Simulated scan of single mutants.
Amino acid sequence: MTIPNPDRHWIQIKKASYNTVATITQQLQTTRADHLTCGPRGIATWRLSSSAEIEVLNDEQLTIHGQTIHAEVNHLPAHVYRALVQASPAFTQYPEVDHLYQQIRDGKPDWDTAQFTRSLEEIAQGGRRPDQVPRLVSTPRTYSATWHPQEFFLRVNKAGDWFAALTFTASFQRLSRSIAPVTVGLDLGLNPLTVAYTSLGESHTFSPTDLSHLDQVAGSRLTPAAQKILRHLTYASGREDAEKIIGWLNHHASRVFAERLSHRAMNTNFIQQARNLAIHDHHFSALSQYLYTSRIPFRRVASYSTSQLCACCFEKEGLEVKGELGFTTFTCPRCKTVRCRHENAAHNVMLRGLNLPPRCKKSQAG
């Protein structure tokens, strides 16, 4: 069976399962699918037979013909994660985990670190129970999805790392729309998560939810199970923050441009914390997949010097003028513009997407 317009989401498999996955590709009926170019780069890709028995057991485990594979399937966009959980009869999760999630999102001033830590350990000690209600995602109002376990792919890269692709069909139903949708350029980061600059000359900043109250919890002696739950909670919070950007774009944007990202250029903080990893996953893959589903044209542009060059001089006169960067500000020595450095970068991203104006390097220093 071929799924029309499939929405494939790749997740990295844990190293402890690499040997198991390699064995599966050798023993089960698989087909080489090296023509499948979406997702992480690899040297070989296999498609499992449509008769392969795949079950998702929890946020960290699935089975293929009874063989357990460790992978964080909760690292998926909200709508496809919901579809996965609801279509998995064997799915188990920790009860009351959604209440903990609401506590960390609410945070201060009523935060009680000791009480939260006790509740976290009690839930971890109680273990998982059968539950097909997605607990760590809000109910999407505009996106929906259906999981197709018969289209399941495995891929290995040069370094020997393994990935799995889960296939969905996704749909979008628009609830509201700006009277005059605009072109938008995005500067992607951690804090702020994103600054959007529009063709009307307006900017909008998306900031993360403050989770600093969790620092003491993370620094305490948690059991391994409690540590995993805490990582899932903070990842879910980062995902929810990032997906607010999608909601804004669906209402306001007619087309979107963003920087072409590379893992080498990204700050290591992007992958050191679960919240930041969620933002990383959004910037690299979920953003484009969401906009594809909602049929908003999206393209990435060159990211060089977007923060350092004055967008005002470039837009008005086609000049590439290097400015001075403060912690949060950009100052142009030529036109004397002082503005948020992230707004300036988003403005440059939009201009590059529109190819306006024709580039001419008349000035480098102003």
Results as ranks from 00 to 15, higher is better:
155 R>K: 14
204 H>V: 09
152 F>R: 01
325 L>M: 09
255 R>Q: 15
243 E>T: 04
360 C>M: 10
231 R>K: 11
42 G>H: 00
255 R>I: 05
258 A>L: 03
177 R>Y: 04
85 V>H: 06
279 I>M: 10
263 H>W: 08
348 N>Y: 07
309 L>F: 11
251 H>G: 05
333 P>R: 07
93 Q>L: 08
149 P>G: 08
18 Y>A: 01
138 S>L: 14
197 Y>F: 00
202 E>Y: 05
198 T>F: 07
320 E>R: 14
292 Y>M: 06
124 A>F: 13
347 H>I: 02
274 A>E: 11
119 S>N: 15
1 M>S: 10
331 T>M: 04
139 T>K: 13
273 Q>M: 08
70 H>D: 09
244 K>D: 09
95 P>V: 00
302 A>E: 11
147 W>D: 10
133 V>P: 03
223 T>M: 01
222 L>Q: 07
250 N>Q: 14
185 G>F: 06
321 V>W: 00
35 H>I: 05
338 V>K: 12
276 N>S: 14
170 A>Y: 02
208 P>C: 05
325 L>Q: 02
309 L>T: 10
190 L>S: 01
224 P>A: 13
176 S>N: 12
306 T>E: 00
14 K>V: 03
291 L>V: 02
203 S>K: 10
122 E>L: 10
360 C>L: 13
311 A>T: 04
211 L>D: 02
331 T>G: 02
101 Y>F: 15
57 L>R: 01
111 W>D: 00
225 A>N: 08
76 L>P: 05
141 R>A: 12
247 G>C: 04
133 V>M: 09
40 P>Y: 01
270 F>V: 03
23 T>P: 04
189 G>Q: 01
51 S>Q: 14
20 T>F: 06
179 I>T: 13
71 A>G: 01
196 A>G: 07
216 Q>Y: 09
117 T>S: 13
140 P>F: 11
249 L>K: 05
207 S>C: 09
30 T>P: 08
104 I>H: 04
199 S>G: 07
343 E>G: 00
